[in-house]
Design a binder for these strands. Structure first.
Lengths: 331, 331
DNA sequence: CCTTGCATCTTGAACGATCCAATCGCGGTG
DNA sequence: CACCGCGATTGGATCGTTCAAGATGCAAGG
């Protein structure tokens, strides 16, 4: 049973005072080089690790960042957050932080959880995902001066806080352009009801791309809630038009999967693209828009540490990343 | 800017000593009822929350539990861990713990991370997932007396530590029996190479079910690494036999998806079942074995808190849960 | 009336780090 | 030779909590 190694142990071993050891760790430049090395050797010889609890008590900083883990609603889209979370954990580790998870049934419960996490664990900051119009969470956090970054744009308030997002319009445009390049002229969009920031963004990309090609998007724009069944129904509907589309750009892989089912019933080929490049897309060979989740997570941590670790060279506080189109069999 | 509320603030407000407040929180039975209520009122009136860092420094307990988040290897199976993680976070919250994430490139890095987490954050325990034969992690942790639970059986050493697992043999047997009940007599198994605990377990379930029905599994047992392409290839091979199987029990949804592709090329119907009931299975209508991940996570936390929060009524330290078969179109 | 025991509550110290103010050594200056 | 300035180092106080030991009050027992 090895004795506990504290800063005092290291100090004795290197024949300096505790404060000098502390300085070596927190302000190396004010310690003479020779002394610094001696202390460093003692640290690694003894396997010393600063006790976070003690440090936190004194400094009020925990080096802990919270993020929420969702109850895998759809199951398909869940994997997006899963991958983001992995990237976040990685990036946090590099920056010397750790990710703490929490769940919340609804918004009220979530705010209560914030209070708890801040009060009991002295969390340094939050990473929020899936923000939508009029999100109460950002206001709550901003009000209390808690550092946070959102993955997802604040759709109402312009740039009140740091965020990272993926350009959904660009993604949808890329998918649409791919179809245009392969000769399609009648390209429909299957998306969510207007009103959701993410959904409207993707829709606008499709619309813009069509218009840029001199085509009219009227009649080809459909709205439905997310899901395979819904996608199939809407797609069937579209394909029964007098002048049916030959390409379907979908706002999610779930919708695209449904669309694929509708297409399979036909004898003519219809191109389909999805969104998010979920494992399902890869499995069934669905062309889909892939979000750079690892990079997004890294940028989130970057923005957050910039706030936490003091005013470093500024750079932008808002980051918009471009997704890429992964071309497979369906388009 | 509200003043920080400490145990001393509460003590003053309730006109008792700090220690009495502490007792109300940690050992309510030794405080007079009347006093207890007065303190409780002060606590809620002031919105007091015990500072974890200070508590941790004194007790050496952090109420933090670590678990690893994997780099979504296959992508399909990733969602299993995702759902488990969500359940774990929930269960931990109820028990008054929080989940901290970490990643690790390889086993050596993982052990180093353990050291770091224990040294710096004083973690209370670990939940390990995906244990396999001769896992170095369990030995390392056990050696140092660190509390941990594994989700997944230790396949070599019999019951050295608490674990929770899902009965893969039962799952495969259920899938096999379903096919037997619907009239199938030639039922093949597509699994992973022998040597992996999980894979062998599932294979044995299929074999046992066949034997119990008086059927001979010889010739119908196949081994391949996980993946859609691999599944397709092996299935095609099986279906080309002189006396081909009419049902395919697969060790994973990935393999089953591949098998489905092979089947689609045929004109006769062949039943296929998968394993893990991933979102993909639901998406394509694949019959699959569903693991009770939420319950598994809850049992993990239960076993862990039993170790951490002192000797409660024992009960078993090993839990084997039964999966259920989700019947869809493919079988 | 004093002792004993029990229940209840209070006081001082400790956990391990950082912050603060004071001290030390040392070469240069008046 | 006393003094100064400056960088490097030191000891003490501090964060908020729990532990260990001591104090208090009350009732029963001798």
């Amino acid at each position: 049973m090895p004795q506990k190694v504290t800063i005092a142990t290291v100090a004795r071993h290197a024949r300096v005072s505790r404060q000098t050891v502390s300085n070596v760790l927190n302000a190396p430049h004010i310690v003479r080089e020779e002394t610094r090395q001696r202390v460093q050797e003692a640290i690694s010889a003894l396997g010393y690790r600063a006790n976070q609890a003690a440090r936190q008590m004194r400094t009020g900083r925990s080096r802990l960042i919270a993020t929420r883990i969702e109850p895998t609603r759809d199951g398909i889209n869940g994997s997006v957050l899963d991958r983001f979370l992995h990237g976040l954990t990685d990036a946090a580790g590099v920056a010397g932080y750790r990710i703490v998870l929490y769940t919340a049934a609804d918004d009220t419960a979530e705010l209560a959880t914030y209070d708890d996490l801040l009060g009991a664990y002295d969390l340094d900051g939050f990473v929020l995902t899936g923000t939508d119009h009029g999100d109460p969470r950002t206001a709550w956090l901003a009000e209390r001066g808690v550092p946070f970054v959102t993955f997802g744009r604040p759709w109402d308030t312009p740039d009140q806080h740091p965020w990272v997002d993926v350009d959904g319009a660009s993604g949808a445009a890329q998918a649409t352009n791919r179809l245009l390049e392969t000769g399609h002229r009648r390209i429909a969009f299957i998306g969510w009801p207007t009103g959701s920031g993410v959904g409207d963004d993707r829709r606008s990309g499709w619309r813009t791309a069509l218009r840029a090609a001199g085509l009219d998007p009227t009649d080809l724009d459909r709205e439905t809630s997310d899901g395979i069944v819904q996608g199939e129904q809407v797609a069937r509907n579209l394909l029964a038009l007098p002048d049916p589309p030959t390409g379907l750009v979908c706002a999610s892989d779930s919708l695209a999967l449904g669309a694929l089912r509708a297409v399979r019933a036909l004898d003519r080929p219809v191109a389909v693209t999805g969104f998010d490049d979920t494992p399902v897309a890869e499995a069934v060979g669905l062309t889909s828009v892939s979000q750079p989740l690892g990079r997004a997570a890294a940028r989130c941590m970057d923005l957050l540490t910039r706030i936490l670790d003091g005013p470093r060279g500024d750079g932008p506080h808002q980051v918009l990343l471009r997704p890429t189109l992964v071309v497979r069999q369906t388009a």
